[in-house]
Design a protein around this nucleic acid. Structure first.
Lengths: 239, 239
DNA sequence: GTCTATAGCCGGATAGAC
DNA sequence: GTCTATCCGGCTATAGAC
């Protein structure tokens, strides 16, 4: 009897863990599918039924795991924003000793590389920026403002050293983000117009160089003509 | 009898003209409302019933005038693209004599001013660029490719004179468009982050200067440090 | 946790009266 | 040219069986 009871209890525990594991898998699959759906169609255009279909689950499971469409959207923004931050953590681990202009340069380079790898992230964010909404206010206060403040501070420091273009740092960061991301966000159009994919390694490396060259200025130790293809300190450039 | 007949005929003509006029008005109102709707939500997200409501007409009138949703979309793209081209015609009428770099500069400046005045136009175009579709192919072949070819040719000429940043002209034009338009397309977010409207005259003039300064280079007649706020030839700058 | 069933609304498109 | 009425399908969300 006791052995039976024990066996049953063990089975229960195993089953529960299996169920918990499956629940987590389902949650993750819904989240991934929702990311694509929201990025593609925006909050209002997105369909939770499409999300469920893409994730391969029944559609009531979406509301079970995330309460409603807005809860799902917030969960997507939270996790993808976390990934955005994590990308910089991963690629700037050993950077604490370098000077601030070098930090800024690496941040901007990694921003380009993240944008190339995650065009959907920028679509997700852009859809909300067009008109005012509670979602936008939440997005700005929770995820956007801090990023701009950090970048603006670094830009101001670089400007004081004459190493970055002049202008309002927030304004300039919008220009940078626009210049960097549009070519990845409109990749299908770019493919038709330019006949090449913007996601190839060669193109992304070129894009990093071109975007940084637009905004960074070499230290003005000696007078020289304003050139773009100026010599730059050695960096990891695989091509 | 003949006078009655004549009177009736005249009434008919007058009524017909009135009807034709009303029909044209309705068409225009639908077109304007559809422009906003497609720009805001993209083709799939847009609702022809919303369009009709915004235009203040009954919804079957949309299909009466434009056959279906896609016909409406094409009509919107055609007319707004015409307005885009017209804007340059209007602002470059007396420009046939100037050198090509000056032409390019004015084209880019007017591109900025058009983007500031018509953020919806760029949303309309951007929605289609994300993924392949028949609409995208039509858009590129009918409206986009020619613009890029014209700009690329001017950019190449300017580059040969050392007056424009180095790089693939098509690539650079995507950077320029991205840098210029994003701040207007995300105006609600910009308002929250920067605490100012990107549509004010002061900001737009600043934006023109900053964007052009990023891409144009002064003639390298004398060696001088790479500065952004370089002196420029006098231009119509009202502020 | 998962699923079926369903309520209640909005979508595009069309038929047919006037 | 205009409008009413209607078809059919997709949408979010929920109730309730298992």
């Amino acid at each position: 009897m006791t052995s039976d009871l024990t066996k049953e209890t063990l089975d229960e525990v195993v089953n529960q863990r299996r169920r918990q594991q499956r629940s987590l898998d389902t949650r993750e699959r819904i989240l991934q599918a929702a990311f694509e759906e929201f990025a593609e169609r925006g909050f209002e255009g997105a369909s939770t039924r499409n999300v469920a279909a893409k994730a391969g689950v029944q559609h009531p499971l979406v509301t079970y795991h995330f309460k409603n469409k807005e809860g799902l959207w917030r969960a997507v923004v939270t996790t993808t924003s976390f990934n955005f931050g994590q990308h910089f953590q991963d690629h700037l681990a050993g950077m604490t000793e370098k000077d601030e202009v070098a930090r800024l340069r690496l941040l901007q380079e990694q921003f380009v590389r993240f944008a190339a790898a995650n065009p959907n992230f920028h679509w997700l964010m852009s859809h909300e920026g067009k008109r005012d909404s509670d979602r936008l206010t939440w997005l700005v206060e929770e995820r956007v403002r801090n990023y701009f403040d950090v970048m603006a501070k670094l830009i101001r420091t670089a400007q004081k050293q004459g190493r970055y273009v002049e202008g309002d740092p927030y304004h300039l960061q919008y220009l940078f983000i626009g210049a960097v991301t549009r070519i990845f966000m409109l990749s299908a159009e770019v493919q038709q117009v330019m006949g090449r994919s913007p996601f190839s390694k060669k193109f992304v490396d070129e894009h990093v160089r071109t975007c940084c060259a637009l905004f960074f200025r070499e230290p003005a130790e000696s007078a020289r003509p304003a050139r773009v293809a100026a010599p730059r300190k050695s960096r990891r450039l695989t091509k």
